[in-house]
Simulated scan of single mutants.
Amino acid sequence: MSDEYPFSITGPEHKGPWLITCDHAANRVPPEINNGSLGLPADDMNRHIAYDVGAKGLSLALGRHLKAPVLCSNFSRLVIDPNRGEDDPTLLMKLYDGSLIPANRNADAVEITRRLEAYHRPYHAAYAKLAASDPAIVAIHSFTPQLVGRPKRPWDIGILFADDRRLADPFIARLQARGDLTVGINEPYDGHLPGDSIDRHALRQGRLNILIEVRNDLIETSKDQEVWAALLAPLLQSALAEVQSHPPSQG
C-alpha cells in the first residue's frame, strides 16, 4: 500500500490465532491536512504526543515471531485518534502534554467528520475485517517515561484490560515470574475507554484481547524492539495455550 493510505497490513497471509495492532504507529500528517503540518515543531512531532514511539517496530517484530498479521495506522494520533470512539472528547486533541496543536485549534464538526471519513473509519474497517476470524487481539502501545510536570513512571511495561481478564491474567503472571521487570497492572492508565479499539473490536464480540504498553525509551531502536518481541512472544503463546486448555469464564 502507498504511503498515502491510512493504514498498512503486514503479513495478511498469516491465519494463526493472533492479530497484532498498533493504533498509534505513525507521526505522519497527510498532505491534505494543513499542507502536511499540524503547526508543531519537529521536536513535538517526534515525541509521544504525535505517536507511540517504538510501537510500530515492536508490533512488526512481534508479528514476525507470532506469524501474525499486523495492522498499523498511517496517520498521527493528533490528526484524529484511532484509539478513541467517535464521540470521545479526546478524539481530536487541541492541547496535549503542554503543547498546543495549531492546526486543530479551529477544527469544527465538519472538519472532524472529514478526518473520520478519510482516516479513522478506513482504519477501523480494516481492523474489523482482520478480526472477523476471531483471533486473540494484541494491541501494542508505548508510553513516555514522564509527562510534563508529573512524576517519573516506574514501570517497564504495563498491561491494560477492562472486564475481560482471560488473557491478561496468565500473561501478567508470566511477566512477573521473570523477576526482572517492573510490571504495571492497568498502568500507566486504567483499563479502556468506551468506544476505543479494544472495546470496539474485542470486548463487544467476546474476543480474547490484551493491550501492552512498553515504556518508549526501552524500544527506541530496532534492536530494542527485537529484544522485546523475543521476550513477549513466548509468554503470549504460553498464556494463550493456558487459556485454551483451561478456558476461564469471561470477566
Rank of each mutant, 00 (worst) to 15 (best):
H124Q: 04
V183D: 12
A239P: 13
D169A: 11
N104V: 06
L130H: 07
H141G: 09
D169K: 10
H246I: 03
I20N: 02
L147P: 08
I140C: 11
A162F: 01
D43E: 15
A68H: 02
V70N: 00
D23I: 05
A239G: 09
A118Y: 11
R166V: 05
L91A: 05
I140H: 04
A68Q: 08
H65G: 04
V148Q: 15
S76Y: 05
K67H: 08
A109D: 14
A233G: 06
D163G: 15
L211I: 08
P12M: 10
T144V: 01
D3Q: 05
G11E: 15
I101M: 14
P31R: 13
E220Q: 15
P122A: 12
A126V: 10
R178V: 08
R64I: 04
E187Q: 10
L236M: 08
E86L: 05
P170L: 04
E187A: 03
D190T: 10
E187T: 03
N106A: 07
D3M: 04
L235D: 06
S222V: 14
W155T: 05
H201Q: 13
A233T: 02
D23N: 02
T10D: 15
T113C: 09
A229K: 03
P31S: 12
L193M: 12
P145Q: 02
N74F: 07
H192C: 07
N74W: 06
L218H: 14
I137L: 15
L181E: 10
K129I: 07
G11K: 00
D81S: 02
S142D: 04
A136G: 01
R178S: 09
L95T: 11
D44W: 12
K56C: 12
A126P: 05
N186D: 14
P82E: 14
A109H: 11
G85D: 10
M45V: 11
K67Q: 15
P30F: 01
R207G: 04
V29K: 00
N27M: 03
N186A: 09
V214E: 06
S37G: 08
N216Q: 08
P154V: 06
C22F: 02
F75T: 10
L100A: 09
I219W: 01
G63K: 00
Y189R: 03
P69F: 01
Y96E: 06
I212G: 00
P248I: 07
Q237D: 14
T221K: 02
H65F: 10
E32C: 10
M45I: 13
D169I: 03
N104Q: 12
A50H: 00
